[in-house]
Design a protein around this nucleic acid. Structure first.
Lengths: 167, 167
DNA sequence: GCATATATATCAATACATTGATGTAATCAA
DNA sequence: TTGATTACATCAATGTATTGATATATATGC
């Protein structure tokens, strides 16, 4: 008798098929993704209390603070592709960041239609000041995983992203 | 000379410290999580076009459709712990599901304060009808991962959830 | 019975996310 | 130069998410 065949209540539960089991794994996978995302946003934002910045805002700042980007900035189009969100939503996030003087929109000298989003001096200082709390949050949140597991998780999420992107 | 020491532009880039590299991995990890979550919501919801149900709504239906839950339902409190979202938000989601007659709120006979959230007959039928499109979405989204990798990813996300939950 | 705690709901503010439709300015190609 | 495309912004509707404050009903401990 298989371990899953017995049903304590006496009801006749069917033996799960391989398809059922695959579905169960997939269901759990996306449910965990959903839970982790909720927790990341809730606790990550809470952790940044002093700055009042959300995880989305820190994602934008992080994108703009990268060495190859910091000087010239990034077009809205490239930011959309990078962050994988809608133009209308990104505009709103940028508005909030601009209102706090953390980023600025400058005309692209090479293309009059485009705007380059850049960190301001203030934004740069803020990002560097955020680094400590973010690192503490990362260390705490990742404490159940070894460094090798973290690398592995990044790789798996990367491939999941690929699969999700073409659906 | 290490592979990361050379900087093509001639600028003096510092050799990244182990802390920097750990931070980079963590940053990429949470950024991928953010991207995957965005894609899951966008494409998952789009995939359910005929039903007009969002991924959050299908998470609730899925929680209520589990064999041990289907008959008696689930309290709001337990749903909050299961879905990891706020009471105010869950109330709104349940309102929308109730308006579509997919779930109902019944008084808990054992505790007059509590409400048990249950799938209606209609909700049950809808959930079963959703099963096909959801499975197709899962199969497509998970196509870059083997079954063993999917199981591994679930385990890693599970532990990440644990770390995120106590921050 | 009375005080306290628990379970749920509601109201309000804010931010994030989508879609669809519209508008404006600049580039580019015929 | 005209016409199409591209890049960005805006307006509107809807759904999801947080927090904080308040209210109501029920349960429980003293």
């Amino acid at each position: 008798m298989s371990p899953t065949a017995a049903s304590p209540g006496g009801s006749a539960r069917r033996e799960p098929s391989p398809e059922d089991e695959r579905f169960e794994v997939a269901n759990r996978l996306f449910f965990r993704l959903y839970q982790c995302s909720n927790l990341l946003h809730k606790n990550g934002t809470r952790h940044m209390g002093d700055f009042g910045a959300t995880t989305q805002q820190w994602a934008v700042l992080g994108a703009l603070a990268r060495p190859l980007v910091r000087a010239k900035g990034m077009s809205v189009k490239d930011l959309i592709e990078f962050l994988l969100l809608s133009r209308q939503n990104l505009t709103a996030v940028l508005d909030r960041l601009e209102a706090r003087a953390w980023v600025e929109r400058v005309k692209d000298p090479d293309d009059g239609r485009a705007r380059l989003i850049r960190l301001t001096e203030e934004g740069n200082r803020t990002w560097e000041a955020m680094h400590g709390p973010i690192e503490a949050f990362y260390n705490h949140a990742l404490s159940p995983l070894t460094e090798a597991e973290q690398v592995l998780l990044v790789q798996l999420l990367d491939r999941l992203k690929g699969g999700l992107n073409v659906v």
